Amino acid sequence: MSQIGGATCTWRYLGRFVTLGIYASVALFVWYTLVPTRSKHKDSIAINNNNADPATALIPVHTKNVVIYAATKFFGHPITTERFLATCPDVQNYCRITQEESEFDNADAVLFHNADYRGSTDKFKKMKSQRKPGVPYVLWSLESPTNDMFRPDSHMINWTMTYRTDSDVWAPYGTIVKLKNPVEVDLNAIWEGKTKTATWLASNCITQNHRFDLIKKIIDNGFEIDIWGNCGKQVSQCAGVDNQESPCVLELIKPYKFYISMENSNCKDYVTEKFWKALNDRMTIPIVLARKYYKDLGVPDSAYIAVDDYATLDEFLAHVKKVNKEKDLFLSYHQWRKEWKVIIGSGFSGWCTLCNKLQDKDYILKNPKSYKDVAWWHSFEMCNNQIASKYL
């Protein structure tokens, strides 16, 4: 027995203390290794309060393996881990997508792509009758209700994964975030690189919101717009939405001052990659039909021009023609670049978010939900396709 600092200490007590310390260390190690961390980040497309690349957005440090069974294809094409988790490669370390029906029983979620959903098949009927608690059935869609109504039966779907901000899993085509620190932007270089007026690349010419009719009327009133794709001239490798990522499209559009970013339907939160890309590396001023849809998504008012800001088409044309001619006025629509950053989502970012959300099994079990009428949720009072009619 010996005395340390005035306290009596024996080797017996010291041995017990060391043993307890070892047990506590092992317990802590097991806890942090096996228990998944609940991510505090709403979605993987968001970035933190810095100017970091969104691809480095935080994911849970401690994770469990997750399997998502894709019960349908994506417009007839396979749904694979390599394609749909490409924007978050780190997530692939613990999350994978399978289309093997044999893995249905072990899946952490079952996903249906709405356009490929066939609810009357024996396969889907079996899934409805054999579902398990804590395994959400997820409905994924990139389309507006004008273009594609939701198909599943009552209470078949637990979560929605769409571009809508109120979806259970948010899967936007893009978003915009405020930078913590302003950045330098060479505005003069933007002006000097613009040699043409306005352009539009589209594959869908006949739409319920009459956008093409309005575009043709704008042209008839003396505002030059070059039209490419199915609605205008054909350009090799550039026509259609499937080639939006082609460098050819960037080269085609970047010399223009304006890009016609009118969607094929005017619906809540339905803002596609054509708007976000026009803002981003194409360095154009998007022309849209209605301000509300972009304001609701937090886009700065000075980043685009909305037709419905003007009482008449003549007033709109007078303004846009002035912007086309005056350098300072044109560059005022690019000042936002110093304080904001566009993040391209393409609608696939929802998969990364879904993988992270599936980490919290306890939350899923304690908060069950299902949609009595998912088609109503998707469509009721969500669209106004009459905005252009005022100007025709």
Score class of each variant (00 low, 15 high):
W336S: 02
N384A: 03
N51L: 13
D220T: 04
E100T: 13
P60M: 06
M149I: 12
L317F: 10
K325V: 15
N49D: 11
F258N: 02
A311V: 04
G229R: 01
Y163R: 01
K338R: 15
N243R: 08
A198I: 03
K295T: 12
V320R: 09
T72D: 02
W11C: 09
V67L: 15
W336Q: 05
A46K: 05
S379G: 08
T284W: 09
K42M: 01
P54N: 07
W200K: 01
C238E: 05
L85D: 01
S154P: 08
N385E: 15
V177T: 03
G350H: 00
I305E: 11
K257M: 12
E143K: 13
I47N: 05
I218H: 07
T175W: 06
E263S: 02
M262H: 07
K64N: 13
S25F: 14
T160F: 06
D226P: 11
W340K: 03
T207S: 06
Y293Q: 01
Q92K: 06
D168V: 01
S261L: 09
C205Q: 00
I79V: 15
M1R: 04
K357C: 04
H155F: 00
Y94F: 15
K217S: 08
M156F: 12
E184A: 04
H334F: 06
W159Q: 04
E184R: 00
Y173K: 00
A198S: 08
K321V: 10
L317Q: 05
N230W: 10
Y137D: 00
A46M: 15
K321C: 07
F275Q: 07
I287S: 02
D281N: 12
N356E: 14
L14F: 13
D269F: 04
T56Y: 15
S236R: 13
V26H: 14
G15W: 12
S144Q: 05
S141P: 14
K268P: 00
L365D: 03
P300H: 10
N221F: 10
A71V: 10
L20W: 15
W376R: 13
E326L: 11
V271M: 12
G119K: 12
K277V: 03
D116K: 09
K216S: 00
V241S: 15
V342N: 08
L214E: 00
Q335S: 07
M382H: 10
A306R: 10
V249F: 09
V67F: 07
E103W: 03
P133C: 08
Y117W: 09
Y270T: 00
W376K: 11
V35Y: 14
R337C: 01
D301I: 02
Y163E: 02
E103G: 00
I190N: 08
V30G: 00
E103R: 08
P152F: 03
A375N: 11
T160D: 01
A290E: 06
R131L: 10
K295M: 10
I227A: 07
A189C: 07
L20S: 09
A71R: 01
T63P: 01
A171G: 06
D301T: 05
P60S: 14
S349C: 00
S261N: 05
K292P: 07
I68S: 14
K390A: 10
K123E: 15
L317I: 11
C9V: 15
I387W: 08
G232L: 02
Y13H: 12
L392M: 14
